[in-house]
Write a protein that binds this DNA or RNA. Structure first.
Lengths: 235, 235
DNA sequence: AGATAAATCGAGCATATGCTCTATTTATCT
DNA sequence: AGATAAATAGAGCATATGCTCGATTTATCT
């Protein structure tokens, strides 16, 4: 297996990445809560963390529609009044969560492959990074996937577009690889779908893999092995 | 590609299978509505069809928790009173849907591989049949996956068990194949997870594949090609 | 046709839920 | 410390929602 990309492990990625969890809440504050009665960023970040984490915990069990604002109040430790000084409506909370996540993740994915030139290495790095990011923000990824259908048309379309961008990144790498004679001629679009399904399974079935002791690095290596078998096989 | 299993296409499968959609509703009537005020099977089947189909339509957009009984009444064309003569509670409807589906699909999957002896062929047939069944009952598969979290503990565990059975069937075939020297030595458990993820993507992203004009047969052939690349490659 | 059984209807009940609004508490500044 | 701004609490309001029940319609039988 020509695994000569200097493959970073998860812990190293966490140290190297520019992302801090705080950024997530700060972004939400700047974009959505600036217009509310909350003035101080520090307070906002502290409480948005409580709200988001509580939302993820509750929705994993009941889904967003099944979560009541009273549930959220209990779980986050904030009163109804406090919650509504951060979000005008329940739907607004959903929108913010989806939007901020998509934005942040877009940045992270782009910064990861920016320096890589070789299309095959680019693909490897992209997959590994995608898995690392989804590991870092697993609750968000799960939530985002499961609740996308509850978004209003506009926001839902953005979600779908983000999904398609992921596929496109993979297809592009494969096309470039084929042009350079590095990979076999295959249906790259279909392959990209399948590869994305593999990536998604990691954060959709996080519990199962945890129980089996599978690590992200192992999972990433495995996906890459599948791809190499499919694409590098001598004809 | 040693594709010498006499691969059935989807239309042929539909003709050959013992399954009729009616069975689905009849099963629900026998197991869950016998104790209700509804006496006549024919009436029950007609209305259960309306109820189930309406549930699928609504829940694709809003999810089960987001669906109100008034929504369901509107969409199914039955009154509130009529609905409640079929199911004691909303939750009961959910349980019935999950249970009956799992039961029926279990039967179909077993009957499909019963005659196949060669482990590799068994795997091919299993995957193809699984995809054909999920194509035939796509709304159920999607619903079942998305709403499993809303089930009570007991029922949810049954759902997870059914998922694991699918994986086990794949692992068993691979183990047997390895023992007979037909496939390479790999992490079969992890491979089975990945294969299942591929299968699930078909019914979770049905819309996307429809838009692209991908057929079930193509999709099945593609998955099998991935597996053969991964497992049959000369070392 | 008349009588009985089966199925359906939908207004109404009790509670749950999204959201508001003022009183109160907490932090910040001079 | 006192005054002001910022943040929070939680009871209360209007509506939505799960479910019931007697009245009514439809099917079946003699």
């Amino acid at each position: 297996m020509s695994n000569d990309d200097k493959s970073t492990d998860y812990q190293s990625y966490l140290k190297e990445t520019s992302f801090r969890k705080e950024d997530f809440y700060r972004q939400a504050f700047i974009e959505d809560c600036k217009s509310t009665r909350i003035k101080k960023e520090k307070v906002a970040i502290k409480n948005l963390e409580k709200i988001f984490e509580a939302t993820f915990r509750i929705c994993t069990r009941k889904g967003f529609q099944g979560m009541t604002m009273r549930d959220l109040s209990m779980e986050s430790g904030l009163s109804m009044g406090a919650l509504y000084s951060y979000f005008a409506t329940k739907e607004e909370l959903l929108n913010t969560l989806e939007r901020v996540g998509n934005y942040q993740i877009g940045i992270l994915l782009n910064e990861s492959v920016a320096k890589v030139k070789d299309p095959l290495d680019k693909l490897r790095v992209y997959i590994r990074t995608h898995l690392y990011i989804s590991e870092m923000l697993q609750p968000w990824f799960f939530f985002s996937y499961m609740e996308a259908k509850n978004l209003a048309r506009r926001e839902r379309e953005k979600y779908i577009q983000a999904e398609l961008n992921t596929e496109k990144a993979i297809v592009d790498a494969l096309n470039e690889g084929e042009k350079k004679g590095l990979v076999r001629n295959r249906d790259h679009q279909l392959a990209a779908s399948v590869i994305k399904a593999m990536i998604q399974d990691w954060y959709l079935k996080r519990g199962k893999y945890a129980k089996r002791g599978t690590t992200v690095e192992e999972y990433a290596a495995n996906i890459i092995e599948w791809i190499e078998s499919y694409y590098l096989q001598t004809v």
